[in-house]
């Protein structure tokens, strides 16, 4: 029961911040895909940086464990391409459309209904997909530091510096 309450509290805080950052709107999401407005990239990368540093500190202290998803090239490349096509049509992603509805953009309802249908269709095809696409290019639970054979902190530092340079460029270009 406590776990459900923590889920709700986490969601409320996250939804509040998504709305304050103005990343829920169709115009912002499609603006990013059209390379006109980088607001959602700024939000996402900053969020990733803070979470990455925090989670790795906690991991090094032995407080938390990473939950690494397996890399399956076929699934992620094809799935990513299909997701991008749908995202470009809808202009919301699975989590943000709930927030978009929360700020009154009720065209998100069509996206929510579509996603329920899409999930149902995927479930129907799962046995076939499991024996085909999900077997293409299986690399297992790998991480970048592991592939490079180095400690995770150099990778984090390079990622943070790269992000800051990208932010500076966005601000200079007014994106």
């Amino acid at each position: 029961m406590n776990v459900l309450i923590y889920g709700l509290i986490t969601g409320i805080m996250f939804g509040f911040l998504l709305q304050k950052g103005r990343v829920l709107r169709y115009d912002k999401q499609i603006g990013a895909l059209r390379l006109m407005d980088m607001t959602i990239i700024k939000f996402m990368l900053t969020s990733i940086i803070v979470a990455m540093v925090g989670v790795y500190i906690l991991k090094d202290m032995g407080i938390v464990k990473l939950q690494i998803k397996a890399t399956v090239l076929g699934a992620q490349v094809i799935g990513g391409l299909i997701f991008g096509l749908g995202w470009g049509l809808l202009g919301y992603c699975p989590g943000t459309q709930m927030g978009a509805l929360g700020e009154g953009r009720w065209d998100a309802v069509w996206g929510i209904l579509g996603m329920l249908v899409g999930a149902g269709i995927f479930a129907e095809f799962y046995p076939t997909i499991k024996s085909t696409v999900l077997t293409w290019g299986v690399l297992g639970k790998i991480t970048l530091p592991q592939v490079l054979g180095i400690n995770h902190w150099p990778v984090i530092v390079v990622f943070v510096i790269g992000s800051i340079l990208l932010f500076r460029w966005f601000e200079k270009k007014g994106l």
């Binding site: 998803k69 397996a70 399956v72 699934a75 992620q76 094809i78 799935g79 990513g80 391409l81 299909i82 997701f83 991008g84 096509l85 749908g86 995202w87 470009g88 049509l89 809808l90 202009g91 919301y92 992603c93 699975p94 459309q97 065209d107 998100a108 069509w110 996206g111 929510i112 209904l113 579509g114 996603m115 329920l116 249908v117 899409g118 999930a119 269709i121 995927f122 997909i129 696409v133």
Partner: peptide, 17 residues
């Protein structure tokens, strides 16, 4: 939006994201 949502979710599930 409906078609886009269905396609996006199919892709997301395929990629396990």
């Amino acid at each position: 939006a409906f078609i886009g949502g269905a396609i996006a979710m199919f892709g997301a599930r395929l990629a396990d994201g």
